[in-house]
């Protein structure tokens, strides 16, 4: 009777939602950092702000398309059920997307904003009233957005973790794992975008900031994954059997080799290799472009694979089939 009810669209959505949360968080953080009274990373803050709303907007569209009746999605907002993570999540997601778009608007360069409103017919006066410079309010907007970005990052994990019927998900570690993975993906996506932007080459101190941020997030993620594995092994039979899915079962290779090895430890190693000499031996931080490119791409692959493994393996786990190991 068992089948996979959630497929690749859900994986993509969970990844994109987390990515936006991470982008917003990193961008907002960069906006707050100052050196000698001057913003330290204004270009990172702008790039992140401009990128942040798009993945979650695309992800939400995919989520709606995945519904059996996509045109009924409005019912998510006409019923509020606080017991359902999905009900809370859809509100959180909507509010976050709106805030992220407003924040991106606040970071639009002056000329972009003008040319955008130049396309609106002059008679649409109400629309033209929106043509205001929100730049002075960037910090306030970032502060409002922080809890929502964290919320979206956690929510993608809670959506799975709150399902008591699936022992693979139902631990108190999945939410944090997804949050730190989301934040790490955001920092990595920002690094990737900055490196790929050839017109405004990334500067060394910017690479250093993003790499440092990513090292912190990857390390935190690693410290969640280890207890997840250890605790699962020491837990009740159903959880132990669920973990078999990644410890010998069908998702073992993708978990250990592709996610943990390639998507987490390799980028961590690259980033530590880049950063450590400047921290420990007082050498100059070089910020190798290819290494930054490789590390950030791998982090994104890892973030996607984590969600893939959890969505698929989690649905296979069950209390019902205690004979799964047979």
């Amino acid at each position: 009777m068992h089948e996979l009810n959630w497929g690749l669209l859900i994986v993509v959505y969970l990844f994109l939602g987390g990515l936006s949360a991470g982008l917003f968080f990193a961008a907002g953080l960069a906006n707050y950092l100052e050196v000698d009274g001057q913003p330290a990373y204004p270009r990172i803050a702008r790039m992140g702000a401009l990128l942040a709303p798009w993945p979650v907007a695309l992800g939400s569209a995919l989520l709606i398309l995945d519904l059996g009746n996509w045109y009924r999605f409005y019912k998510l907002f006409t019923h509020f059920r606080w017991e359902s993570p999905m009900s809370i999540g859809s509100w959180l997601l909507t509010l976050f997307t709106v805030i992220a778009f407003v924040y991106a608007f606040a970071w639009l360069p002056e000329e972009w904003r003008r040319s955008l409103f130049a396309k609106v017919p002059a008679t649409w006066k109400q629309v033209h009233r929106l043509n205001v410079d929100l730049a002075p309010h960037r910090k306030t907007l970032a502060m409002i957005g922080f809890p929502f970005s964290i919320g979206v990052g956690i929510y993608t994990g809670v959506l799975l973790g709150a399902v008591s019927a699936r022992p693979f998900w139902n631990t108190n570690l999945v939410a944090q794992m997804f949050l730190f993975s989301a934040l790490s993906s955001g920092a990595a996506a920002l690094l990737l975008a900055m490196v790929l932007d050839k017109r405004n080459p990334i500067e060394t101190h910017e690479t250093k900031f993003l790499i440092t941020l990513d090292i912190v997030f990857i390390s935190l993620e690693l410290f969640i994954i280890l207890p997840y594995l250890i605790h699962g092994q020491l837990s009740v039979l159903a959880v132990k059997q669920a973990l078999w899915l990644i410890l010998g079962g069908p998702y073992t290779v993708v978990f250990w080799v592709f996610f943990l090895g390639l998507g987490l430890l390799t980028p961590l190693a690259i980033e530590v290799y880049e950063l450590a000499p400047s921290l420990l031996k007082d050498r100059v931080f070089h910020g190798n472009r290819s290494l930054a490119l490789a590390a950030s791409s791998l982090v994104l692959v890892g973030g996607f694979l984590l969600r893939y493994i959890f969505v698929y393996a989690g649905q296979l786990s069950s209390f019902h089939k205690l004979g799964m190991l047979r």
Partner: peptide, 21 residues
């Protein structure tokens, strides 16, 4: 009439007792 077809209930059922029509 209120089911949007998100299949969260199917994922959440410990007995896999539901199906998608």
């Amino acid at each position: 009439d209120d089911c949007i077809g998100c299949r969260y209930c199917m994922v959440a059922c410990p007995y896999d007792a539901r199906y998608f029509h």
